[in-house]
Write a protein that binds this DNA or RNA. Structure first.
Lengths: 330, 330
DNA sequence: TTGAAAGCGCTAACAC
DNA sequence: GTGTTAGCGCTTTCAA
């Protein structure tokens, strides 16, 4: 900036005014400064400016999702990026990988870079450690999972209700032996969906059968193996509720190879790519990751714009997409 | 930092030493400083530090991909993140959306934040505008597409060769009327794949039929419509080479609804989710996005570590995955 | 309309 | 082993 000022024959403050489009600079001076900046390939350093700027904004956001490679997370990410772009805010994106250590290191990495706000998917048992930042006015919005030990804005899918819808659909088709295949109960969404499953069965007067309830399925292979196990039971389930998208894929593979895909009904939680093109097409309770990302990002910016109201929970509805696999009768 | 220093009863430089784990500080002082930092919830501002630090590193990377929501891009992103994480480098991720304006604004957003390096997918006709940064020593690695007007490291798929492999496979199955469905020729990869298709046909002594070559398919719907058009020809193709993953999905949908999916052969470029579970399963020329991301990120860090050799092109091999749709005979 | 001086939070250089 | 001073690139304040 000093070099540009010297070349243009003005003071640094005038260069600053031109760069930031502040008023009270003559047209002629503006032109001279612009020419000098161009000539020297001047790129303003916004971080340096933010050091002294009154609002101390870095125009930067920290986003932590399950994994940037997961379709659900990627859709959340894209929505956040689009909202951020409108405000010239850049997004740091990181993957959680269900690793508590990664949660802490990512959050710290964001904080040390003085992001203006945080959008977080978490796995630590408590997020109380973020209370300090929240008190300091850093907007934090939790996505997909409810935080613990702290009151903050949260955007999530209606997990229990969605799971209930899936199970009710299977019940309506006449099923009584409905298996549950889910993820690690350390994960908030897994607990919620399982709760929806269990509650719905009980409401229907069906005592859940422990042998049909399988947790800790954190990849396709484990899900496939679980299905093989279920099918080998004396009284196998006539329907499966699969509580996560990777699990659903594993279930489909396994049902297919056992020749059971047209016999055993399947409803998955979270949509699966190409679901409509499979045989049978896969009935799912679809989430709306784009809405989740959008609501979260808007909330962060609303708070940055001064919105001061109590933390709120935003519940994003699911949608049952009937495609075939869920309508197989027992 | 000043506050921590005061509370610990030391100078700021000592706090700096403790934070950065520099040597020559007594154990006791370290403990006192840590306690004070803890008590004040001190978070060092790494941007401020980088302002004065000798290497001027921000420990930050700019990544521009097609779209963070696209599975190919997402896999590249994930690989870059993993490499960056090892070095405590945070990644700004943005989507290009095939928009030349977005290329410029993203690159500028990165540069103004003084990223240590850039990994870019581009759409502008020329990237000569980046010559200045390159000369200044900012490592820039282009991914997926070759830049123009500038010599820089580039990591890409063997597009033409992969397309050749697909077409050769269809030829080997006895096909002579093979259609090409591709994206906008403004996109580097689309041009390359088309070239592979045309060259291979000619080498086989087959004159390409203009009616079987369709470009500018930038979404599933257009691809579906193109297939409907092809099937309505007097002498329709017996096989289709689909040059991009979204196009492949559109082709599958359209073949399916026309009842032609077991009659017309299909080989896609870039793998498609669930491809193995479809009927028929989809034969593809698979890319390796994780390798692309990894090679690109390593190259950036090698350059940051002082590697000084001419720009190089890294060609990542494709792999023909035979699954069924490509083995249908005419 | 313009510029000089101070200072944002930190590290480099050097003195003690 | 520890502290002091200058300065990174910019904005703020205030005077001209």
């Amino acid at each position: 900036m000093k070099n540009v000022a010297d070349l243009a024959g003005v003071g640094v403050k005038t260069v600053s005014r031109v760069i930031n489009r502040e008023p009270h600079v003559s047209e002629e001076t503006i032109a001279r400064v612009r020419r000098a900046a161009e000539q020297l390939h001047y790129q303003p350093d916004i971080q340096a400016g933010n050091l002294r700027r009154a609002d101390r904004r870095t125009d930067t956001l920290g986003l932590l999702v399950g994994s940037v490679a997961n379709p659900f997370s990627a859709a959340v990410h894209r929505a956040v990026e689009d909202i951020a772009l409108e405000r010239h805010v850049a997004v740091f994106a990181s993957s959680l990988d269900e690793d508590p250590e990664r949660e802490l290191s990512s959050v710290n990495a964001f904080l040390r870079r003085r992001v203006d706000g945080l959008i977080l998917t978490t796995i630590q048992p408590s997020q109380a450690y973020l209370g300090i930042q929240l008190d300091q006015g850093v907007p934090i919005v939790f996505v997909d999972r409810r935080p613990h030990g702290i009151e903050a804005d949260t955007v999530m899918t209606e997990n229990a209700e969605g799971a209930s819808g899936a199970v009710e659909h299977l019940l309506a088709m006449g099923h009584r032996r409905i298996a549950y295949l889910g993820d690690d109960e350390k994960i908030f969404t897994a607990r919620e969906r399982k709760r929806g499953y269990l509650d719905t069965l009980r409401r229907a007067g069906i005592a859940p059968d422990d042998r049909l309830v399988i947790d800790n399925l954190d990849d396709e292979e484990k899900a496939s193996a679980a299905v093989a196990h279920l099918l080998a039971l004396d009284d196998p389930p006539t329907a499966i509720f699969s509580a996560q998208n990777l699990i659903t894929v594993g279930v489909i593979t396994s049902l297919r190879s056992a020749g059971a895909s047209t016999r055993v009904a399947l409803v998955g939680f979270d949509d699966v790519p190409m679901a409509a093109l499979l045989e049978p097409a896969v009935t799912v309770v679809a989430q709306d990751p784009a809405s989740i990302g959008e609501i979260a990002a808007r909330r962060v910016f609303d708070r940055l714009d001064g919105l001061d109201e109590p933390a709120q929970e935003f519940i994003v509805p699911t949608r049952l997409i009937v495609r075939g696999s869920g309508e197989i009768r027992p």
